[in-house]
Amino acid sequence: MSTPRGIRNNNPGNIDFNPRNPWQGQLGIEEGVARPRFARFDQPENGIRALGKLLINYRGKDGLPGLGEKGIDTVLEAISRWAPSSENDTRAYAEAVARSLGVRSTQPIDLRHPATLRAMVLGIITHENGGNPYKAQVIDEGVRRALL
């Protein structure tokens, strides 16, 4: 069985490569695939950091009408932006991540809270890669870096 793309790229959230985003530890676009799309990182902690930073930054973006407070502050809103329905079963993805957080997908959450961000990151890693290969310390360090 081959290693999932996100794990090979040290980018367990499968963040699209964008040269305008000079992420800490980003090495460039992925290599060795027919249609490169995702960023590559030097270590998983920096890929997890970028994942966490993006989720935190979503708070300032427009959320879905009638959900939560102003901005993106629910699992459903965050996953709708992270994994658009044009490419994913966004509702199922959001429900799976919300279950891992122990909340409803439409319930407001605070991603600046370390335990909440960690749970959200872990839910995304698990969904994007079919599981989580990382030790707790790797995820903890990526989340710590995201919150700096």
Rank of each mutant, 00 (worst) to 15 (best):
P22Y: 13
A119W: 14
I7L: 12
L101K: 10
E95C: 00
I79K: 02
L55P: 00
V121W: 06
R145I: 02
G28M: 04
H113V: 10
I48E: 07
E31F: 00
A34I: 10
F17Y: 15
N10Y: 07
R81A: 05
R40H: 03
A119L: 14
F38P: 01
E77D: 08
P12L: 10
R112M: 07
I7H: 10
I7Q: 11
L122P: 01
G60L: 04
I125Y: 00
I7T: 03
Q107N: 05
V121I: 12
G123R: 08
G102N: 06
E87V: 03
A50M: 02
T74H: 03
L111G: 05
N14A: 04
P44W: 15
N132Q: 05
G68I: 07
K61I: 01
E77S: 09
G71K: 06
M120G: 04
I29K: 09
R5T: 10
R145Y: 09
D140W: 01
G47V: 07
R145Q: 11
V97H: 07
P4H: 08
G130Y: 12
N129S: 08
L148Y: 12
K61P: 00
Q137H: 06
N11E: 03
K61R: 14
N10D: 12
T106I: 11
E141H: 12
Q24A: 10
A78E: 01
N14L: 06
T90C: 06
